[in-house]
Design a protein around this nucleic acid. Sequence first.
DNA 1: GGCAAATTTGCAATTTTGTTTCGTTGCACT
DNA 2: AGTGCAACGAAACAAAATTGCAAATTTGCC
Lengths: 156, 156
Amino acid sequence: MIPLDAFDISILAILQADNTTPQRDIGEQIGLSAPAVQRRIKRLRETGVIRADISVLDPEKLGRPITVFAEVKMEVEKVEIIKQAKAIFSSTPQVQQCYYVTGDVDFILILVVYSMKEYEELTQQLFFGNNNVKSFKTSIVLDIVKAGLSIPINKP
Amino acid sequence: MIPLDAFDISILAILQADNTTPQRDIGEQIGLSAPAVQRRIKRLRETGVIRADISVLDPEKLGRPITVFAEVKMEVEKVEIIKQAKAIFSSTPQVQQCYYVTGDVDFILILVVYSMKEYEELTQQLFFGNNNVKSFKTSIVLDIVKAGLSIPINKP
DNA sequence: GGCAAATTTGCAATTTTGTTTCGTTGCACT
DNA sequence: AGTGCAACGAAACAAAATTGCAAATTTGCC
């Protein structure tokens, strides 16, 4: 477990909202010098607390892709089967998100495709083409009301 | 609709994987000068194609928050009711993602909480406390197999 | 096809930002 | 008190982003 003090928490809160914020500005906001901030950010990256730095794109502006939500049930819940499924889902670019969950389904996926044809091919490849998949159910996303990866940072 | 040429597409692909990539490197990769890249990025931001630039944090390293998946069904699908629900979900920090979908449920949510107590309070506030919510079902996420916001960029 | 207007580019100079160095301070442990 | 460690800030430095400008490319229109 990496120890995080109040400064780290503040830095993380700022960066997960906008990682183009200059280190000087961050320093000013939290009361630290730019180098101190820089060293902390470096450590946060090295230790994996900051996992990635990315631009978030607007799907609407990129050819209006279709977001699809899928629930998947596996035939058997053998470790090896699950592991294999995870690997397949992870490596598929159209799979934007994949969660392994409790309850009556095993996986929850968020898919992004550009056409129904691509959607069909994808379901064929991921679900029908996989004997370990017992059943699946999909829903079309009508509206992405909110989509982020922000983690609430003020623990109660 | 904002016209995007091959250069823009390449730039977006790079930035959505790593937005700390120096503009000079981007230019080298795609065959453009740094200023040209910079001007394009600026325009992409201004036009909203790039919606945000963020650091992605590792939940595991931040006090092991619990990710919860929730399906919500509304009493009636009146526009006003839906609109209101969207507003509530959007403004709740623990709601990391919210999708309005077709099918037998109306909303799909991904929640992030730090304790079962917080989870209980949240369901009370969001679901039990809202008369327009007919029913809801939640699952605990055992493993975040893949979580990103990347949009596949090579259109078929 | 050819021409003019508008865009977009690359280069060079400037500014801003990020990084390294170095000396100092606070603190736990002997 | 003395030592070692960790983190800090100020200043110097390196790297990257941004701007101004002239040349080149593209676009729209005869």
